[in-house]
Structure formats: structure tokens, C-alpha cells
Design a protein around this nucleic acid. Structure first.
Lengths: 229, 229
DNA sequence: CTCGTTTTGTTCTCCCGTTCACAAACTCCT
DNA sequence: AGGAGTTTGTGAACGGGAGAACAAAACGAG
């Protein structure tokens, strides 16, 4: 317990594994994307200011974020785009493709299966699962839709650690339980439900109507202000 | 400029419009959803502890969040589910449906158009737009797909304030510019790009591969730790 | 070789958000 | 009517992140 607060600073032989603030971790993928774009445009070097603009953040914040990874820049010059890109990809852990399963092949699940960004950004969809037998005939994005019962076999075969839930809200908790039982330790949840999982399992949720409602709140504030003016 | 920092605390006659912390605003929709679920289960009253569990947050945080809206609970008793639900919906501004346009009717756009959660949570999709003429024949979710050029007309007819971008990354900035020109002041962006908009326009972004990459980072940390143990 | 310029890496300060802990307030039972 | 038991609402301490500002380091000109 009390030990853990110190234990995280204890280093393995790699010495590379410092703990990176959560806010920084959430921005690293944004930097990675911006660097990829710069690289595709033929830029080989960039300053923190340029990269910050491309990523939509403050340059001081960008430099501080990068400093948690190490000193990969050159003072007076800037950063080598491809080198920094590789270092960030390595830090995130997407230098080779990670296997992912998608459960729930409705409209959203199909959209996710067809999303090319997964493949190009370090992930490989190894299976599509659905509880509805009527869907097991289908092929989506070149992948057979298989029964949900196959989850255990597939997870074991491909060493899957990441699962995506795109089912209706009512099914989501059951799916999550089965995923956890299969050894999946990271879940991306699109169903509008709070998932109950063991502490060691990471869950991130994406809720479309929540995002819209946040916008609606600010929208209301704006128009209210305009009405009184 | 400098005036604005004080201006927000100036109250209109309603006196209800204090400024709510951004972190709280982001959680209000979660509480709203939890209250709806409780209401559908026939629960008429709940304590902060019960609601906190349903929403997946700490009960102290929940109470503090609600305190920004006013005192809608009863000490020693708890909260009236339907009453609190209405108060939160009113604060967010979703007591009546808000019109929304979706641009980009690919896989993701179709999934969004078919998503029933929009309608049930305070939004109404009034138009689907796509730049590809081949799609203008189609009907998705009972709504005609129309040319992107119709945006201005539709935005004016329905007083649309919220736009959803589900186009490829390259088109997103152009779409955003056109939306802003049409008077849209809130944008939900699914394209993997940083959007450049005037300060008064709110943008929220949802990036699927970024979410996965954040999970990948923690996944890597977990398995690295396991390897050394 | 030295000086000026550029840009990184880091320190310091401030602010927002979270959490604890407790007083105020309401209900119910006797 | 009064006291015991709950539960809300909030004051205060705490931790983390954001941004400004600066020192250290690299490069280039002369």
C-alpha cells in the first residue's frame, strides 16, 4: 500500500519506465498523429512550436509532455520527426500491431470494423463477434462474424488483450464479464452503461450522446447570453 | 477581454445561472443517464450513494457536483429521482429536442444516424449531408441524404446550432468552415484532425484510435510489470 | 574561437478538481 | 415533544496539471 507510492519510482533494468502523468498519456496519441501527418508531408524536422500548432496544444505543455519520455530533441534545432514519432509509438506500445476483438456488429460495430484508422495506427481486428445467429452468415470488412461463444477460443489463439464493446446497453455488462474471464484487461466501451470490472482492468468509455449533451450545455449558455444582450 | 472573467459571475434575473466547473458539466450527462435508468426501474427516490454507484463516481463528488445546480435533495432522505432528472436536463438544456445535422454518411455517419440514443436523449437529426452525389439517392434511418451544398438552407430552416462531422480527415476542416459560416456554434468531430475554428465555437472530438492507444499504453505497462515478476 | 541566436528542458507558481470530514437539516420512533 | 439515526451540502486540505519564465545547450557568423 504505502510502499506503492515509492515502488513506482523503482526502476527495472531498462531504466526507461518512469511513470507518465495520465494527462500526458492522453495527449501522446495526438502528437503521434500530428507527427505522422508532418512526415507524410515531407517534413523531416520540426520545432516544438510547429508540432504544438499541428497538435492543437500549447508549446510549453508539449515540451513538458515530451520531457517525460526523455530528451529526444536538439536545442536550437528542434525534433527529428521520424525519430520522435518512433519514440512515442514505442512509449505507447504500438510499434507492432495489437490484436483487438469487436463484440456487437450492429451499425456501430460495422463502422468500427471498417475503420481503417485502427490498422494504420497499431491495431489489428482479429475477430468480430455477435450474439445474434442471423449475423453469423455475414462478412464485414473481410472478416467473418462469429458467435459470441467463440470469444474464449479467439482470445486465447491470438493473445487478445483489448476488447471493444459495441452492443446495446443491456448486453454490455455480460460481454465485459466474459471478456474479463478470457483474460482481456483493456476494454473500450461504446455502450451507454457503467461497467463493473476488477480493478486491474482498464475501461475507457465513448458515449456519443454525452458528448452532444456537453455541447448542448455550452450552447445554451451562449444563446442565453445573447438573449440578454 | 478582461471583463469577461468577471462578466460570467454577473447574474441575470433568473439568478440560476452560476458558472458550473467544466469537470462537473462533463459528468452531468452521466448522472442524467443513471437517473433515467433508475426511473425506468421504478425507483422514485435515491441517496447520493446509490446514484453515485449507478453513475460510477464517488458520492462526495456527486454531491458537490449537484450542489452547483442548487439544493435539490432532502437531508436525511435523498433525492427525488424524477425531479432531479428534470433539473439536470434543464441545466444541460435538453428538455426539448435540439436539431443536429450530420455531415459525412459513410459507415460511421450511418451508424450515428441510426443511433437511437440521440432521439431519446434530447436531440433530433434534421439532416444527413454528403458530398458524394452517388449517395444522394439513399435514405438512411428514414432521412434523405442530401448534397452538402444544402447545409446553409437546412441550418437556417431548422435553426441548427450543433453539427456532427463524420467525414474523412481531409474534408473535415472544410466542413467545419462551412458550418461556422452557417452559424453553427458547436461541433462534434469524429475525423482524426485538429479543427481550426473561431474562439466562440465549441469543438469536442472523439477519436477512436486515440482511445485505443491510451489503453495500449496501460496494457504495455501491465504486461511489462508481469514479465519482471 | 567567441558571441549572438535559436530552441529545448525544467523550475516555479497558480489554479482547478478531488476528497475528507463535519455541521445542518430532516425523518422516525418512542 | 425529544432524541437517535440518516443523509445532504459545504468548508478546508491536498494533489496534479497548466502556463510562464528562464537557464542550458546547440548552431552559425564573423
Amino acid at each position: 500500500m504505502a510502499m506503492e507510492t515509492r515502488a513506482v519510482t523503482a526502476r527495472t533494468s531498462s531504466e526507461n519506465a518512469r511513470d507518465i502523468p495520465e494527462a500526458t498519456v492522453a495527449r501522446l496519441p495526438v502528437y503521434l498523429r500530428a507527427l505522422t501527418t508532418l512526415s507524410e508531408q515531407g517534413t523531416s524536422t520540426c520545432s516544438s512550436e510547429e508540432l504544438a500548432v499541428a497538435a492543437g496544444v500549447n508549446s510549453a505543455k508539449l515540451r513538458k509532455d515530451l520531457s517525460y519520455l526523455g530528451s529526444y530533441g536538439t536545442r536550437g534545432v528542434g525534433y527529428d520527426v521520424d525519430y520522435l514519432r518512433y519514440q512515442i509509438a514505442r512509449e505507447i506500445g504500438v510499434t507492432q500491431d495489437l490484436p483487438v476483438v469487436i463484440v456487437g456488429i450492429g451499425n456501430l460495430g460495422q463502422a468500427l470494423a471498417n475503420y481503417s484508422g485502427f490498422r494504420s495506427r497499431g491495431f489489428r481486428v482479429v475477430a468480430l463477434l455477435d450474439a445474434d445467429p442471423a449475423r453469423h452468415e455475414e462478412v464485414v470488412a473481410g472478416i467473418d462474424v462469429r458467435p459470441f461463444a467463440d470469444l474464449e477460443q479467439i482470445a486465447a489463439d491470438h493473445a487478445v488483450a483489448i476488447g471493444v464493446i459495441a452492443t446495446p446497453a443491456l448486453a454490455a455488462q455480460d460481454v465485459a464479464d466474459r471478456m474479463v474471464a478470457c483474460g482481456i484487461t483493456s476494454i473500450l466501451n461504446f455502450a451507454p452503461t457503467v461497467l463493473n470490472v476488477p480493478e486491474q482492468v482498464d475501461v475507457r468509455k465513448v458515449d456519443l450522446s454525452i458528448e452532444l449533451q456537453i455541447l448542448a450545455y455550452h450552447e445554451q449558455r451562449k444563446t442565453q447570453g445573447a438573449a440578454s444582450a
